[in-house]
Write a protein that binds this DNA or RNA. Structure first.
Lengths: 347, 347
DNA sequence: TTGTAGGCGTTATCAT
DNA sequence: ATGATAACGCCTACAA
């Protein structure tokens, strides 16, 4: 059997020899560094493409940058992350930076291992997506490498950037919409995390409470929390829907929970939205399916991802002051909150 | 502002000095290499944990392994990949290997770029998940690095391993089930790829055709192909369902397509499964939702992922002969293919 | 503007 | 069983 690598590696030295210049010159061309003549640059570029030279990332990582960005996602089941990644990819399209993903399994411990693994690998920067770890851990990471955090709100001054949608506003839009449609007892279905004021669920709760009060529905305020395991979600939703009095609407902190809620409602023979309205958050592609027709909040994952990648590259290039971007969310109304009997009453 | 890294790096030299041994000795302990006394090993281990030493992956990548494995997924929207990743993570749990993901965007060009990027970064091996590139490209990659391919069937002898479910059998199970329930005109809804006999869709088509013929339904054989963009899928499904005669059942090559089909059926006011039965493939978690209740094929993503990671590590450790694993799929029947009017006729 | 000479942290060969 | 040391490919003072 032939050995795995028959052809010798093309190094910066090969290129230099081929182009008849020094290695330093080639390195400078590679990094767009100062002090190379156009003629030299052209010669080198020509040799690079002809020889098919590719810089050895590990060697780069030892001295300079690795041109690798780490992205840590909590899980792979939420299609919302696909939109975000699309945005990140788009932002990095024309740069040398390569995003590489790790899955944090919604576990602070795994997330931290992943961060270490990525920094061991000399990644130039990190994007943390909805991290479950506490915010002081995030702060500690930001001391070690340029960091941008998404779907995780800053508290106080930070040394990392954040990109979020306005979760309080999103929740308000939902409550206002539901109240406008005549729903009064609106339950907020949140996630069971150790109390952490940087979590999006917490911000949505604030918005929910404020909007309920403003709408004169303060006495209907009710927050339920569940682990995100489907079974537990279903059990809790079932309890809610079988309770007396049954809530008129459920605002789920993310679409996935809302889909489970739709499922339970159907199993119980309840009509959505006539017996109970259901709302999600993230406006993932499954909301559009007729069997879901889920009213939800669109926070434009693409845009969020794009901005996050942009901020990270800026920071790698030297920016020191933290930037905190907030995207304005948009309500997308579908059948899950629009009563059909409005028509039948008319007849 | 404090500089990013106030504390000097703990290198193998620091550890060696601390433990009072040579650098070579530490390196041997790190790699479990032959020829270290227990006493020395203990001393070194102690220093390592006390100093919190972590090997510098880039430096490792220059001489030895990087202990990084690249996983390339076609996209992030299919929750089936979450199961596979869970299996990969589980297999790698107790090893030094770290899986890192790249998203191929269902594009051969992007996939190839990703492969280059990963090999530039000295990854020790690659797992290609449902690659869209042609099989000779895959073969070329396998010459450059240890490679395991999932959801992509080998043709002829190869230098890479594969892990697949028995796609022909899966398709047969579906057709047999549908035929047994009395459905005759069963359409196979496949993916529009340049013809490539290694794609799973192709294997499912073979199984479909064979099973249809065996069931005496040869004259009903009908294959439709679509790009995977939701809009095109919906358009084609709508054409199918509005056609005369309308097919009695649609077997979709993957769950996601089936969910779209369910949606279109509902929009057209058709009952599933009374007017049309719908089947998916992968048994993703959304199949269980009452609003989908989708009959599907379970191919145990966890197991697939686990095996793939195991094979890859074996191969990195030196195995030369290719292994080709095939997992047996299992039919999971739900309401989307079980006629309800069997009951109503009884009344 | 271009070239030379370490040095980054690790592995692996070769002595001892 | 242990240790000294030469690579690995690139970056960056510094020198020319």
């Amino acid at each position: 059997m032939a050995p795995r690598k028959p052809s010798a590696r093309v190094t910066i030295r090969t290129v230099a020899a081929d182009a008849g210049v020094s290695v330093a010159a080639v390195s400078k061309v590679l990094r767009n560094a100062y002090g190379v003549s156009d003629a030299l640059r052209a010669k080198v570029q020509e040799s690079i493409t002809r020889l098919g030279y590719r810089p050895h990332a590990a060697a780069r990582g030892m001295r300079g940058q690795s041109y690798t960005l780490g992205v840590i996602l909590p899980d792979l089941t939420n299609p919302f992350f696909a939109d975000i990644m699309a945005g990140i990819d788009a932002a990095l399209e024309r740069t040398e930076y390569q995003p590489l993903l790790g899955v944090g399994q919604s576990s602070p411990a795994v997330e931290l291992e992943l961060v270490d693994a990525m920094l061991d690998r000399q990644m130039d920067g990190l994007i943390l997506l909805g991290p479950r770890m506490t915010i002081d851990r995030v702060a500690a990471i930001a001391e070690r490498a340029p960091t941008v955090v998404m779907a995780h709100h800053p508290v106080g001054p930070t040394r990392f950037d954040t990109v979020n949608d306005d979760d309080q506003l999103g929740a308000r839009l939902i409550v206002q919409h539901l109240a406008g449609m005549g729903y009064r007892s609106i339950v907020y279905f949140s996630q069971d995390l150790q109390f952490n004021e940087s979590q999006v669920t917490y911000h949505r709760e604030i918005g929910y409470r404020a909007a309920m009060t403003e709408a004169g529905l303060g006495r209907y305020i009710s927050v339920v929390m569940a682990e995100q395991a489907p079974r537990e979600v279903r059990t809790l939703v079932r309890q809610l829907l079988q309770g007396r009095p049954r809530p008129e609407a459920i605002f789920c902190w993310t679409d996935f929970i809302a889909f489970e809620a739709l499922s339970v409602a159907r199993e119980l023979g309840l009509s959505v939205p006539d017996d109970v309205a259901i709302v999600g958050y993230d406006n993932t592609r499954y909301c559009d399916l007729a069997q879901n027709a889920l009213t939800s909040i669109d926070q434009s994952g693409q845009l969020l991802g794009l901005q996050a990648a942009r901020l990270l590259v800026e920071r790698i290039k030297g920016r020191e002051e933290a930037e905190h971007l907030v995207i304005t969310p948009r309500l997308v109304v579908r059948a899950s909150t629009v009563r059909k009997n409005a028509v039948s009453t008319g007849n």
